Computed example of a mutant assay.
Amino acid sequence: MIPPDLRGRRERDPFWVAVNAAFNGIQRFRSLRAPAPPAVRPVDRTMRLTVQEVRREAEDVVSLRLGAPDGRVLPAWQPGGHLDVLLASGRRRQYSLCGDPADRRSYRIAVRRLPGGGGGSVEMHGLREGDRLAVRGPRNAFPFLAHDRYVFLAGGIGITPILPMVTAADRYGADWSLVYTGRSRASLPFLDELPARRVTVRTDDEHGVPSAADLLGDVPAGTAVYCCGPAPMIDAVRAAVRMDATLHYERFAPPPVTGGKPFEVELRRSGRTLPVPADRSALDVIRDVLPDVAYSCRQGFCGTCRTAVLSGDVDDRAPSDQGDDSMLVCVSRAASGRISLDL
């Protein structure tokens, strides 16, 4: 028995000290011989697709069918899904998938040409068969959920996410109807693909600009209302839809700034401080001096414009808010005063 030391502890047994040292030495030797773990590489989820077909669908609207150059099967998608398109200019845009989800060899999107827009639609209209296009996705921020009864509302190019939903509802035997609006019949894409028996077409030149009552009619309780179109149309429907119906909507233009307060945004790397008025987004102001800043949906869900916040409090207005030290400059704002961004 080894006697305890003066503090009441026993001395370490030399035998076990030697065993422990030998064991540690073996472990160190093994670690020196073990191969280094592989470096973690970021996954590139970008697909390089080929434009297989360009087709004129309506005034200023073309559809593009995209497929893999080797004809491989593409990732699956559901009605309401979209692609993030990475253009050669560096612009990023989102376009709803408007083909058949059962077709796993190609994606179809449609684009209305907006000469006074940000340039993305003009660039898309310049594509030809055989051109290559980089895309990411599909992703879905406008999911089509199972219901017994649907009312679909589409304004112009807003038919693109609605079209696969209508097809799915008809295939599943659900009770559904569609009100399709636009400037004129010539401006409405995919009219020939819609079953006429349940579709009401209302054009401004024939019927005038529709009210929310014209669009909704008498919506029965428990109806799922799916709406995609210009901001005034969506705002009118949101205000008028009955409480016992469920409303799902997607904008194809950024929502107007409401309840905004002026603030300053400091672009730390650029060395500039810009005033943001109450009625403009930080993204719009930043693009005045940094036109190449990345953005896509401008509605706060895609995350493309997420920017690190170096100082200041954020008034988060984004559905995809991550609760970290960043903000989506397309919709979120400074809570007060000034905010500093890593731009």
Rank of each mutant, 00 (worst) to 15 (best):
P3G: 05
R7D: 13
D13I: 03
F15C: 09
A22N: 05
G25T: 07
I26G: 12
Q27Y: 13
R30K: 11
A34F: 04
P38H: 12
D44A: 12
R45D: 11
M47L: 08
V61E: 02
P69M: 04
R72C: 03
G80M: 02
L83C: 06
L83T: 00
A88L: 07
C98R: 05
G99R: 02
R104S: 10
V111T: 06
V111C: 15
R113M: 12
R113C: 14
L114V: 15
S121F: 02
M124P: 01
G126P: 13
E129W: 02
A141Q: 13
F142S: 13
L163Q: 00
G173A: 13
T181M: 05
S184L: 11
A186D: 14
L191H: 14
D192N: 01
D192P: 00
L194T: 00
R202L: 14
D205L: 07
L216M: 03
P220W: 02
G229N: 12
P232L: 00
P232C: 01
M233E: 09
A236E: 08
A236L: 09
V237W: 04
D244T: 09
D244S: 09
Y249C: 09
E250P: 06
E250W: 06
R251E: 12
P254A: 10
P255L: 10
G260I: 11
E266Q: 09
R268S: 05
R268E: 10
D279E: 01
V285Q: 03
R287Q: 15
D288W: 04
A294L: 08
C297M: 02
S320K: 05
V329K: 07
V329F: 04
S332I: 11
A334F: 04
A335Q: 05
S340W: 09
